[in-house]
Simulated scan of single mutants.
Amino acid sequence: MSLSAFHRLLLALCWLPLAALADGSLSAEREQELETLLYQDCGSCHGMTLRGGLGPPLPRSRMNAFDRDGLAALILHGVPGTAMPSWAGLLSEQEARWLADHLQHDTPLDE
């Protein structure tokens, strides 16, 4: 029996250590896990280098058209009527904000 990518991700996330530190920041380990999630799981639609695929490319210029909280909300709640799913069951608001910040400042794609 083969597990779908979604089910493998769900199982992996169930085994993750608590991600938030006492000061509310994310651990370096969790930040690395989120970056891996971005390039592997988000990359399955947006392309492994975020240059597009089933979903659109995610260059910094496009990501900066949103404010960080708006982009985090898009990550958490998805886009109805499209293939963009809600990640709210798998990510916290803090983690979605970290991903949004990463997309706006740290991705290698700048078009």
Rank of each mutant, 00 (worst) to 15 (best):
A19V: 05
L10H: 12
C14G: 11
S2I: 05
W15S: 10
L16K: 10
D23Q: 02
L16P: 00
L9F: 02
W15F: 06
L3S: 09
L3A: 07
L10Y: 11
L10R: 06
E31G: 15
A5M: 09
A20F: 02
L9H: 01
A28C: 07
F6K: 05
R30M: 14
L10C: 01
F6Q: 09
E29Y: 10
L13K: 11
R30I: 03
A12D: 14
A19R: 09
D23F: 03
A22P: 09
S27T: 14
L16E: 15
L26V: 13
A22Q: 11
W15G: 12
D23G: 02
G24T: 09
Q32Y: 12
M1F: 08
A19E: 13
E29T: 06
S27M: 12
R8E: 14
L26G: 12
L10P: 00
S25I: 07
A19S: 15
P17C: 01
L21G: 11
R30E: 02
C14P: 00
S2W: 04
S2C: 01
L13D: 11
Q32I: 02
L13H: 07
R30K: 13
A20G: 00
L11K: 00
L11T: 00
L10N: 08
S4F: 06
E31A: 12
L26F: 14
A20K: 07
F6H: 10
L3C: 02
L21K: 15
A12I: 00
F6R: 08
L3T: 05
L13M: 14
L26W: 13
R8F: 04
A19N: 09
E31C: 15
Q32C: 06
L21I: 01
G24Y: 09
L21W: 02
Q32H: 07
F6V: 05
L13I: 05
A22G: 02
A20W: 02
P17D: 10
G24D: 13
A22I: 03
R30V: 01
R8M: 12
S4T: 15
L26S: 14
H7C: 00
S2N: 06
F6T: 08
L10G: 03
A12P: 00
S4K: 03
S4N: 05
R30Q: 15
C14Y: 06
S25W: 09
D23C: 01
R8N: 07
C14K: 11
P17N: 08
L10A: 08
A12F: 04
S25F: 09
W15K: 06
L9K: 02
L11N: 02
L26K: 13
A20I: 02
A20N: 03
L16R: 14
L10Q: 11
A19M: 04
S2V: 04
A5D: 14
L26E: 15
A12H: 08
L13W: 08
W15D: 12
L10D: 14
A22R: 11
L11W: 00
